[in-house]
Design a protein around this nucleic acid. Structure first.
Lengths: 122, 122
DNA sequence: AATCATCGATTACGTATGTAAACGGAACGC
DNA sequence: GCGTTCCGTTTACATACGTAATCGATGATT
């Protein structure tokens, strides 16, 4: 599986690819306080894990995701649900509800979602 | 923070505490294929992290959680929501909905939850 | 052509994690 | 009392991770 620091790089590539190491650094350097070498290492590990691919562009490489964000999000979320909420979504929502951590926006969106589910094939 | 293997031990203690190392092993040994030493190490790391406490009981110790499951669940879930869903619950539910990964039971419980929210102080 | 600048690749290193084995002291059985 | 058993404590070791520095090749400069 792909680590947290690696996921930061992936997020950049998911937003916009292909990108060079330099461009990636430019986008995360501020927030992460990373050096060039750090990004290079992470990219190499991601290559080894087949999570990104690299295509030559003159003297450098441009990187693109191979792993889809959807897939990563799903794996990661499912793993958490399995470990903490018997693998289901509702108990997680219940947890945040009990902790009063559902925003108005959350609640509105959840209502909307459930309504849409009503409208689907019976 | 507390690791995944450590969390397995915590789950045992959350279900029922205080427990001895031996009892913990008895409960997880099957599923995890762990040796005695593994459980001992994990317990020591948890002690160091102040996630459990130990009280002497004759020749051995009985361990109990110091970290509440609620707190652990919240930290872990919030971290995931922050990293993948802009910190909110609804987008996670939407993701599982799109992937057709909401069970009947999930949907029923979500409806129930939202109804209960209606009934609360205005 | 010799030199310099730029990249990726290789190597480094401390900490965390998973998984144990070894050690050492106290309690128990004789 | 003395060996044996039972625990916890200490030590071990491979892999992963975060974070870089360094090396080496390739292309640009003069």
């Amino acid at each position: 599986m792909i680590s947290e620091a690696e996921a930061v790089v992936m997020e950049v590539l998911w937003r916009n690819a292909p990108r060079s190491a330099e461009e990636i650094l430019a986008e995360v350097g501020q927030a992460q306080q990373w050096q060039e070498g750090t990004v290079k290492s992470l990219l190499n590990r991601l290559l080894k894990k087949k999570a990104v691919k690299a295509e030559r562009d003159g003297r450098r490489y441009l990187y693109s995701p191979l792993l889809a964000r959807e897939k990563y999000v799903h794996q990661t979320s499912k793993s958490l649900l399995d470990r903490l909420f018997e693998g289901r979504v509702a108990p997680l929502v219940a947890h945040f509800s009990e902790q009063r951590k559902l925003s108005k926006k959350d609640i509105a969106e959840l209502r909307q979602l459930l309504e849409e589910l009503d409208d689907e094939q019976p």
